[in-house]
Design a protein around this nucleic acid. Structure first.
Lengths: 200, 200
DNA sequence: CCTCGACCTGTCACTGTTGACACGTCAAAC
DNA sequence: GTTTGACGTGTCAACAGTGACAGGTCGAGG
């Protein structure tokens, strides 16, 4: 339930409407904790019912400005200071890596290379972002930069890992493939069943 | 819907029961694509209904052994070769970083230091795991090692980032805190509202 | 005057994930 | 002979997140 805390954190800085918050989730928060419209409006309502927020003003076009309450601030601080139970990590990319021996070695290498390129592009995007932002010495600049640096380091790590990984793949492991779009021609190849059991 | 493909990938290597697969999700896959019992059994049923799997044998204690079918293999290959739409990334840790200016600077530093220590521990755990696994030169060893290497590099990156980040925090940004467990004493400090708007 | 784009709020059905519950069996140790 | 523990299957309620739908308002430009 971290969306709740993202909302509280944002509103602790300054009051805002759902629409305002939505913009933030599409920009600043997009790489940290994305959220959709339905989620934001829904959670704002629940937070208000729970007394952690209140509607401090109603403007034109039905705009509602939300303000954090004292219980809300307390909740935010509690969350910030609380030890975090580790969230389950899921990586579709690594899942694919696990099964890369099912396709031809050059395809597998191509996959990793593409991942590396994507990571580099991501890194370049973040570097460009860093250039374009007018960093001052306020708290948001300090912590925003720290978060951004994480993204840059992560991208660099992925790129170098992908290059290394592509080089680890031997000349050929399992040969067959399925052409670009075609279904494998059926038949019982059955083979490939003698792999070692676990790797943990 | 990657659980589906994880199941297909596992069963493409060798037939197994839900229980067998569950063990794998608790060990090898735990750091890549964890899944609970209800998910595994449920998905196996759906996959069988869809004709991507079939029950190849029924053993003692109601054990059902599932085998991948040709359509299942085709689906797996298609997925492996398909370009992946990027999944939304969520990091509760980075979300906290965004709001770290709400607590005292030494607390913020402590948070980052703790993150670094946790990352180092994770890295050490993976290194120990690497030692304990009898790597051969089979495909599972190759790709398992590649995935493991990712985890190690990720942990190292997080540790060094955390150290760097802790050093970025100035002597003090915002002063107040809320003691170890106490609620903030209420009152309208209101201040802290003049932060720059966006950072994207 | 009208249209268009930005503003602004909300709901709904669906999927993936979680955690708890519920049930029954077989082998080995006591 | 009974208990214990691993084996083995399944269901259910609840919740987070997604994407589409549905509606309405205000200001500026043609």
């Amino acid at each position: 339930m971290s969306l709740r805390h993202a909302l509280l954190g944002l509103l602790d800085a300054r009051p805002a409407s759902g629409y305002d918050l939505l913009k933030t989730f599409e920009t600043s928060m997009a790489n940290v904790w994305p959220a959709t419209q339905s989620q934001v409006y829904g959670e704002l309502g629940r937070l208000t019912d729970a007394g952690l927020l209140e509607v401090s003003a109603e403007g034109a076009r039905g705009r509602k400005e939300y303000t954090i309450t004292d219980p809300g601030r307390a909740e935010l601080r509690t969350w910030l200071l609380a030890p975090e139970p580790p969230r389950p990590v899921r990586s579709e990319m690594l899942l694919r890596v696990f099964f890369l021996d099912r396709i031809a070695a050059d395809r597998a290498r191509a996959y990793l290379t593409a991942q590396g390129a994507a990571a580099e592009a991501r890194g370049a995007g973040l570097a460009a972002l860093e250039e374009s932002v007018p960093w001052d010495d306020g708290p948001l600049s300090t912590y925003g930069r720290i978060a951004l640096e994480y993204g840059k380091r992560q991208a660099a790590m992925q790129a170098s890992w992908a290059a290394w990984a592509a080089a680890q793949i031997p000349a050929d492991t399992s040969a067959w493939d399925g052409a670009t779009g075609g279904a494998p021609a059926g038949g019982g190849e059955g083979g490939a069943a003698d792999r070692a059991a676990e790797n943990q």
